[in-house]
Design a protein around this nucleic acid. Structure first.
Lengths: 247, 247
DNA sequence: GGCGGTTAATGTCAGAAAGACACTAATGAA
DNA sequence: TTCATTAGTGTCTTTCTGACATTAACCGCC
């Protein structure tokens, strides 16, 4: 049986992946940006990314680009698809559809010098503005995804090292949500939720101050009931983008 | 200044949109499926969809396909992007990336007979199995998205006609979540949440029984605090698919 | 007109969870 | 030993939800 090829009448497009790589540095949430080395948008900051290769699937492309930018392929990294943007005018050169991925890692070092990351740098998330292409939207959607995920899942532990204190975990929430989280209620919620964290039995000393108990990430993925953002502005959750359709 | 074209070394792909069209018929949640008229997967059921055209953006393509399938372009329809699937082997003919959209409408009629919808039919969501391509995954993800959205947003009203009763709204929840919802607590939650519904002042009589008050959808999009599924199996929320990456 | 059945709406009680915040504990430095 | 700092535990109140009872508003029938 002969199988017909796809009609040549259909559009053929380039597909890229764009990465929103988040980490926590200097007590604040940062995103990795690169300076465009050539047109279009030369000199402007953009999210890192690249073109899909022949017969390459999307997550592999995202992992490849991530490894290029951060040098990491650690399994503890979080990588998840967020949205797809396909406005024909988003890239002046040609019709390019991009699939964005949220990547989260424990404290990442300064960007490595590579051919694509020559002018890469960590930017505080509240300082991100005027990115190339539609990357402002891409970034905003991924940031909101990260914020929502901290409400409903135990994802925050991915921002931490293998062992961490409750205080460190709470500061992750504060960095991602952009506001204070009550230490007493946070401690009760996290340690009272089965599978969120697992005590190691050891402590980490700080000078001065009471030594803090150390924990590892537990097996639970879902945080149920969720820990909702309350006193940090009105929730502009990704839930509310009814009829949201990325172009 | 001359702008370089995209390198010919990068892959060029076909992009499609796939629609998960949900409606409620005969007290149950249904999805629109079409029977494939040609290879690959000829004779098998699939989600409706089609190829992106030259210079067409994704939501326009989704709307175009939706109009073809349902005859509707009603602004009250809900249409939102869900995920993108790009496994090179997902279509035997060529490397095709698909972007899935969730579409929700009030009670839709039997499928119109069109060239693409010749063998279209509504299928109860719990009877969906062995779809073509990777459409089982596509469908499962969109269904879960719909289920989650009923927890966090006022989206359920889109399944209803312009005016509806609280009982009708509750049956939407029961159809989408697949289990019973307590009428007394539901009524209190819905009518007690600002902006969820707005009373019309009229009633709808049923014979026999107490006339039910009629409502319209209110302005609120977010349902906060959310109305979480509790006694309908463990929540298999889309939140828990950490590291979920559609291929 | 009254009664019964059905559906809708309101109400009650209890418990869980979270918000707000105080107090105690465990250090190390001075 | 004292003090400052950080961590952890605790208390009270409020809010919300779960479970379920009761009342209300019909229409059909006698």
């Amino acid at each position: 049986m002969v199988m017909a090829a796809v009609s040549r009448r259909h559009a053929r497009l380039y597909v890229t992946v764009d990465l929103v790589i988040l980490t926590i540095r200097e007590e604040g949430l940062h995103v990795l940006l690169v300076e465009r080395g050539k047109e279009p948008y030369q000199g402007q900051l953009a999210l890192p990314g690249g073109f899909l290769r022949e017969r390459e699937n999307l997550p592999d492309a995202a992992r490849r680009e991530l490894a290029e930018e951060t040098g990491l392929s650690d399994a503890r990294l979080h990588l998840e698809q967020v949205a797809t943007y396909g406005d024909p005018g988003r890239d002046p050169r040609d019709h390019v559809v991009t699939v964005s991925y949220l990547a989260i890692a424990p404290s990442l070092p300064a960007p490595v010098a590579g051919s694509d990351a020559r002018h890469a740098r960590w930017e505080p998330v509240d300082r991100v503005d005027r990115l190339a292409f539609d990357h402002n939207d891409v970034f905003a959607d991924a940031l909101e995804r990260a914020r929502s995920k901290l409400e409903h899942t135990t994802l925050a532990t991915v921002f931490c090292a293998e062992t961490f204190t409750i205080g460190e975990l709470r500061r992750v929430y504060e960095a991602v949500w952009g506001g204070p989280v009550d230490a007493r209620n946070f401690n009760r919620k996290v340690t009272g939720t089965d599978g969120f964290v697992v005590p190691t039995g050891e402590t980490r000393r700080s000078t001065p101050g009471r030594p803090a108990a150390l924990y590892r990430a537990g097996p639970a993925k879902t945080l149920y009931p969720p820990m909702l953002r309350t006193n940090i502005g009105a929730p502009t959750s990704e839930w509310t983008r009814i009829n949201t359709m990325r172009a």
